[in-house]
C-alpha cells in the first residue's frame, strides 16, 4: 500500500475500550498535575482568606477533583467492560503510512511560522504565504487559482478590516500597504 493510503478494515483502530482507557488515564494524570503542581504554583491566593470556599484556589481544586473522578470513571468503564468493539470511523480515519502525519507536522510548522511572520512581515504578506503553503499542502488541483486566491483573499480582508472596520492590521517591517 502506498504511503498515505487509507486502509479500511485493517485491525489498526482503537476500540471504545482503549479510547476510554487512554482518555481516562490522561484525565487522571491531568488532574494530578493540576492538584500537585499547577494550582499550588500558578494560582495566587491572598494569605488573609479565612474561608477556603471563597479562596481563588477553591474552584480550580474542585474542577481538578471532578476531572480526576471522571477520568477514574472512564478507566473503570474500560476495565470492567469485556467489549472490544472497533469503531468503523476509526478504521477509516487512521491511515497507513507517514504522509498524513507529515502533513500534520507541516501544518503545525505553517502555524508557527504565521506567528513569527505576523509582526515582522505583516498580516497580508504572511497570510498570502500561508495560503499558498496550505493549498499545496492539501494537494490542490488548481495551482493557478490557488495563487490568485492567495493574493486576492488577504487583500480583500485587509481592505475590509483596515478601511471599513478600522482595525490596525499589522503592516510589518518591509512593505506597507495604504
Amino acid at each position: 500500500m502506498r504511503p498515505g493510503a487509507f486502509s479500511i478494515g485493517a485491525p489498526i483502530s482503537m476500540t471504545t475500550k482503549s479510547l476510554h482507557l487512554r482518555i481516562g488515564i490522561a484525565a487522571i494524570l491531568g488532574a494530578a498535575f493540576l492538584a500537585a503542581v499547577a494550582i499550588p504554583n500558578y494560582v495566587s491566593s491572598p494569605s488573609n482568606v479565612g474561608n477556603i470556599i471563597l479562596s481563588p484556589v477553591f474552584w480550580p481544586y474542585v474542577l481538578a477533583g471532578l476531572t480526576g473522578i471522571v477520568g477514574f470513571g472512564l478507566v473503570l468503564t474500560a476495565v470492567f467492560s469485556d467489549l472490544t468493539v472497533f469503531d468503523p470511523r476509526d478504521e477509516i480515519a487512521i491511515p497507513v503510512g507517514h504522509a498524513p502525519w507529515l502533513r500534520l507536522a507541516a501544518l503545525a510548522v505553517i502555524m508557527g511560522l504565521v506567528m513569527v511572520g505576523l509582526p515582522r512581515l505583516g498580516m497580508v504578506w504572511t497570510c498570502m504565504l500561508a495560503f499558498v503553503a496550505c493549498a499545496f499542502l492539501f494537494r490542490t488541483r488548481h495551482p493557478i487559482a490557488a495563487l490568485v486566491c492567495a493574493v486576492v483573499v488577504p487583500l480583500l480582508l485587509y481592505a475590509f478590516f483596515a478601511h471599513v472596520a478600522g482595525v490596525a492590521i499589522p503592516q510589518g517591517n518591509f512593505v506597507r500597504l495604504p
Binding site: A130, F131, V132, C134, A135, F138, R139, T140, R141, H142, A145, A146, C149, A150, V153
Partner: peptide, 8 residues
C-alpha cells in the same frame, strides 16, 4: 474546491 476553501 475545498482544498482552496480551507486555506481561505
Amino acid at each position: 474546491p475545498k482544498r482552496l476553501l480551507m486555506p481561505a
